[in-house]
């Protein structure tokens, strides 16, 4: 179990496949660049739009999706608290998005067998952010704009510019899984 590494790997989002494939479960990373928030209903709507052959609000090539629905933005701030939600609720939709180019996911908790299989096959990585640390994580967001499904309120898709957003590689592109390691 590789949890002692003090080294922090700097990543840029959108994420290159080669960068994703170098990461190993247990690596600490800091992500800088553009990521997108999407959760339950947004995922359902994306997949329904794809079924109808319509455009979706996100360019999936190399994209990193953050499973999160922020609190409202108080005056003078970039965004309200924005920590990860439980990723497993998105599992049914995820393999399809990975096939279409989704490269990274940030959330909390385990993923399904199907998601991990797709990650291994197409070279996608799953990061865990600290659940319940929403105020702290909001400090790493430089810009936030709603870019799709805005009638969903907190569940709308947002484009976030993040700087050194901290996370841990929970499941890597070889299928190594930090959540399983702890049981050994």
């Amino acid at each position: 179990m590789k949890t002692e590494s003090c080294k922090v790997i700097r990543l840029t989002a959108p994420l290159a496949e080669s960068a994703a494939r170098e990461l190993r479960a247990g690596d600490r990373v800091e992500i800088t660049g553009t990521i997108y928030t999407a959760r339950d209903t947004a995922h359902k709507m994306i997949v329904e739009a794809l079924d109808r052959g319509e455009d979706i609000p996100i360019d999936l090539k190399g994209a990193v999706i953050y499973y999160a629905g922020p609190a409202p933005t108080p005056p003078g701030k970039v965004i309200g608290s924005v920590g990860p939600t439980t990723s497993g609720r998105m599992d049914a939709f995820t393999p399809r998005l990975i096939r279409l180019g989704l490269r990274g996911m940030i959330g909390k908790g385990e993923r399904s067998r199907e998601v991990v299989d797709a990650m291994v096959r197409y070279g996608a990585v799953y990061f865990a952010a600290v659940g319940g640390a929403g105020a702290l994580l909001a400090q790493r967001v430089r810009k936030a704009d709603v870019i799709g499904y805005d009638d969903l309120g907190p569940e709308a898709i947002r484009k976030l510019e993040v700087e050194r957003f901290p996370a841990i590689v929970a499941i890597d592109t070889q299928g190594n899984n930090l959540y399983h390691d702890r049981r050994k």
Binding site: A68, G69, A71, S81, T85, G132, G134, A135, A138, Q139
Partner: peptide, 11 residues
């Protein structure tokens, strides 16, 4: 959260 007057968690 206390210093920035932000909710501890977004949920």
């Amino acid at each position: 959260a206390r210093n920035e007057n932000l909710p501890i968690c977004q949920d």
